[in-house]
Simulated scan of single mutants.
Amino acid sequence: MKMDEKDLTSLLSTSVVKEVPRLVNYIPDFITEEEEQDIIKKVNSAPLPKWTQLSKRRLQNWGGIPHEKGMIAEDVPKWLNSQIDKIASLDVFEKDKRPNHVLINEYLSGQGIMAHTDGPLFHPIVTTISCGSHTLLEFYKRHETENNITPKREFSLLLEPRSLLILQEDLYHNYLHAIDERTTDVISRNEIKNINMCSRTYEEAKVLQRSTRLSLTVRHVPKTTKIKLKLGR
């Protein structure tokens, strides 16, 4: 059954990952293979100035660039608005908190991101669509990292291509998430808490090879402005 034939709202109650602190939802095959390929094509055909090159990955901002003084709101293209519509139909966001920003990160095999939280610039719900490749998302207690204690990894989630991840509540505020820099991931059914919710069965100790992954992080930025801000100071 295609996703658009389902009652999307009911997915929230059936997609809760119960073995972790509140709250995370994992929905495999949230988008179709055709949608995935269209997204990859659109991202890769974006003009070069749209990309921001970081030291270990590159990214695109759509809807504006979040800033503590306010995000200068920009129109989100139709191909991304269709995914925002689908996420909004889940009713995880309040009516006046419709997502207005999409951050697209490109991760080549071997690339990752350090432990972080999404922070106060966003409404405390983060939704992420994965395209192209899987990854393992690692979670750490926030207070341990802030106190310079070597953080202990609490658990992992396997993010498959075409899946949707939703983080909120305790997991948004009190945990950090990261992607380790490696080219392969090894299945551990004890550590990967959503393994039984995935779209396929993974054997214990199976090695998964990473390829290029695009993550679409869809969020609501509460503070926006249409006035051009002087952001240099």
Rank of each mutant, 00 (worst) to 15 (best):
W51N: 04
P47Y: 07
Y26R: 02
S10C: 09
P47T: 06
V16C: 10
E35W: 03
E34L: 09
T9A: 13
V16E: 08
E36V: 04
S55K: 15
E19Q: 13
F30D: 03
W51F: 14
L12S: 08
P47V: 05
I31L: 01
S10L: 10
I40A: 00
N44L: 08
S13I: 09
V20M: 01
E34G: 10
W51I: 05
D38E: 14
L48K: 15
P28N: 08
I39R: 01
V43K: 02
L12C: 11
V17E: 04
P47F: 06
I27P: 02
T9Y: 15
T52K: 13
Q37S: 14
I39G: 01
S10Y: 11
Q37M: 15
N25R: 07
A46N: 11
A46G: 08
S10N: 12
D38I: 09
V43S: 01
P28V: 05
V20H: 00
I40W: 03
K50N: 15
P28D: 06
I40G: 02
P21A: 06
A46E: 12
K41M: 11
E36S: 06
N25G: 05
K41I: 08
P47E: 08
F30S: 01
F30T: 03
D29V: 05
P49E: 04
I39P: 01
T52W: 10
V20S: 03
P49F: 04
K18C: 11
T14H: 11
I31C: 00
T9K: 15
V16H: 07
D38A: 13
K50F: 13
R22I: 11
W51R: 09
P28E: 07
S10E: 09
P28C: 07
Y26S: 04
K41T: 14
S15P: 03
Q37P: 14
L12W: 07
S45N: 13
N44H: 11
V43G: 00
S45Q: 14
